[in-house]
Simulated scan of single mutants.
Amino acid sequence: MGVAAAGAGCVVAAAAGRADAAGAGVAALFLLGVVAAGVVAARRTGHAAPALVGAAAVGLLSHPFGDVLMAAPPPLLAPVGPALLDGRVALAADPTVNLLGVLFVEVAAVWLALWTYARLTGRRLRDSVSPAATLGLAFAVAAVALPRPTMASAHLLGFTAVPLAVVLGVSTLRRRRDAGSRGEVLLRAAATGTAALALAAGAYLLAYSVAVRGLVAG
């Protein structure tokens, strides 16, 4: 904890030297939030506070990278240093494929979080995925039934694929005698929903690629 406090002090001091008092205050609040989240999580789970504070810090520091793919990237070193990127990073030339690539990155981040939780609680993530997740493959029909989503119209994908995944995940919450503990039930719902979203995105990408090739060939 002493190392975390020292690091926070260095960042706030640097911010105060490079920016105004408001910027330094915001940086301090975020860093205090990181420490508080780690301490609270440690008390409620019994895991080491330094490790959880470090995990919270990784989450805070990696957060701006989402905007690197989704929108105009913020100054990643602000308020300490200059901007590292001056434009959005594209994963593919095709705007729809690029949007799907961003979705896969986000899904991978969720899988990492679920895997970490399962590992810390002594569970197997694979066993938590319900067969209901395979229904996400039906989302392939959206490739021909809906307009092509792009970054500017990402809601076409978000308001269709995500609700489908949520419904499939929530469908596993039905109480049964063999459902297990609350943690197991919630992990099953989250893992099933995430798997359904991944399968839906993969099925859409495959169907979209076939449809685009057909149009090009035609």
Rank of each mutant, 00 (worst) to 15 (best):
A48V: 06
P75I: 02
L85A: 06
L100D: 15
G54V: 06
P64D: 00
P75N: 02
F30Q: 14
H63F: 03
H47K: 13
N98C: 01
A37W: 09
L99H: 07
A71F: 04
A57Q: 13
L103V: 12
H63V: 08
R88H: 05
G46S: 08
V35Q: 10
L69N: 10
G81A: 12
A92K: 13
G46I: 00
L31D: 13
H63G: 08
G33A: 00
P64W: 00
L77I: 02
A93G: 07
V40Q: 08
G87A: 14
G46N: 12
G101Q: 00
L85Y: 08
L85H: 09
V35G: 13
V34G: 12
A41I: 15
V58R: 06
H63T: 09
A55Y: 10
A57W: 13
A51E: 09
T96E: 10
T96D: 05
A37R: 06
L32N: 14
V35S: 13
P95H: 02
G33C: 00
L31P: 04
P95C: 01
G38M: 11
N98Q: 07
N98M: 00
D94L: 02
P50I: 05
L77W: 03
L52Q: 06
G59W: 01
G33Y: 11
L77A: 00
L60S: 12
L61G: 08
L84R: 14
L32I: 15
A49I: 13
F30G: 09
L61K: 07
V68W: 15
G33M: 01
L29M: 13
P75V: 01
G101M: 05
V97G: 01
N98I: 02
L52V: 05
A36W: 08
H47N: 11
P95S: 05
V58N: 04
D86E: 15
A41V: 15
A28P: 12
A27F: 13
G81S: 11
G66V: 05
S62I: 05
L76A: 03
L84C: 11
A92S: 09
A49T: 14
A42P: 05
L100E: 13
A41D: 10
